[in-house]
Design a protein around this nucleic acid. Structure first.
Lengths: 221, 221
DNA sequence: GCAAATTAATGATTTATTCAAG
DNA sequence: CTTGAATAAATCATTAATTTGC
């Protein structure tokens, strides 16, 4: 249950770096690109590497500072488990899939998540992953059906000798029957990362240009 | 400039859906999974599909509600262009890469982005993509060097005919020389999506379980 | 009937490939 | 041509469903 074993691999690689002389070690392989419109704005902080990426952010905080993570998770979320969709959520997602949705953008994921949240706990990435996985698995199911019909209708024994090789990776997308999205369309997805540590939560705002970090109401924890 | 042409492909496919009988259409291929601990909390909203994923959320709002997207983007970001890293940013990223960082997690990306933001405009996904691309291209450069030494040492002319085919996809990962991260380690990344529409910005809090949406200080725009 | 072992299904993550901007 | 950005494919890992032994 609690065997998370965080152990992120930011090793203590920066301890024995005596002084950071970055910026002139090894540049781009091309020409020295003269800096942009707003680079080096006369007050460049010298990149205090000691303060950022501190190597002991992983295997700490398992004995003291969390006294409340045992109180409110007993029925809703059993810790760090994965998303377990309810039937209603699956139904809605499949309905959307049958409607033609394949790769929802950020706003669509937002709305879908908000709606599916009424039926159970869900996050945005669950919706994203669901569409990715469902699309991929429908595709390979279709592919498996297609080359299973002209080779041997049954006999699930030894079928691997025919080397389902690398062809028809892109041609087999047009035979879906229903309408499908064009491959590799450029949609700006604009997703962001978010710190999900145990005691501090930050949320970066990507839409803003000022790149601000703000802790979100710590009285909730 | 504003030729985004959003045109999201959630068509008007749900207008002619008379009543939503979701939840009993297609179950798991195995037994009917009886619902979880907190599914159907006695007040299931009947999934008002009309209100969510409205089909005309794409090509609207280009004449009225955005009067400010022409004012504040003239020098910092020329619209929807991609990230153009500065030399300092590249230097720091390569330094981190040489230090062994391959796939930073959310918190590391957070901090890296915050630091690199001092040298120019950058977002979290740029850092993520940079590590992805740099790792992949170092890998294929290594691969190309490895099988270029016993085939043809130069001839940069027609190089695409040699078809670096699909073998040694997993064996060629151990010959990096330096230390590398083990493939497929499970790190909980916990990234989230974010609405980046023109007039409204939401930020979902993934760490919290209540899945709340909140607009972040609209007086800034 | 129930619990441990097995298996199938699938959520989540990483790698490979491709497109397109500059 | 280089490389940022995005998607597709591969695959790890966990959970539910099934089977098995008692």
């Amino acid at each position: 249950m609690g065997s998370m074993k965080v152990h992120q691999f930011a090793r203590g690689f920066w301890e024995h770096e005596p002084s950071l002389t970055l910026g002139c070690k090894r540049l781009r392989p091309l020409a020295p690109k003269l800096s942009n419109t707003d680079s080096t704005p006369t007050t460049v902080p010298p990149f205090d590497l000691k303060s950022f990426i501190r190597p002991e952010s992983g295997p700490r905080k398992l004995g003291s500072s969390d006294d409340k993570r045992e109180t409110a998770h007993v029925d809703t979320h059993p810790g760090g488990t994965r998303w377990n969709p309810t039937q209603e959520q699956i139904g809605i997602l499949e309905m959307l899939y049958r409607g033609g949705m394949r790769t929802p953008n950020a706003q669509q994921i937002e709305q879908i998540t908000a709606q599916l949240g009424k039926y159970g706990k869900i996050e945005g990435k669950n919706v994203f992953y669901w569409f990715q996985n469902h699309k991929a698995r429908e595709r390979q199911k279709q592919k498996r059906n297609n080359l299973g019909l002209n080779h041997s209708p049954r006999a699930p024994g030894v079928t691997t000798t025919t080397t389902i090789s690398s062809s028809l990776t892109h041609e087999s997308r047009g035979d879906f029957g229903r309408e499908e999205d064009s491959p590799y369309k450029r949609k700006c997805r604009s997703w962001t990362f978010e710190c999900l540590e145990e005691d501090k939560r930050y949320c970066r705002n990507e839409g803003d240009r000022t790149l601000e970090l703000f802790p979100l109401h710590p009285e909730n924890r």
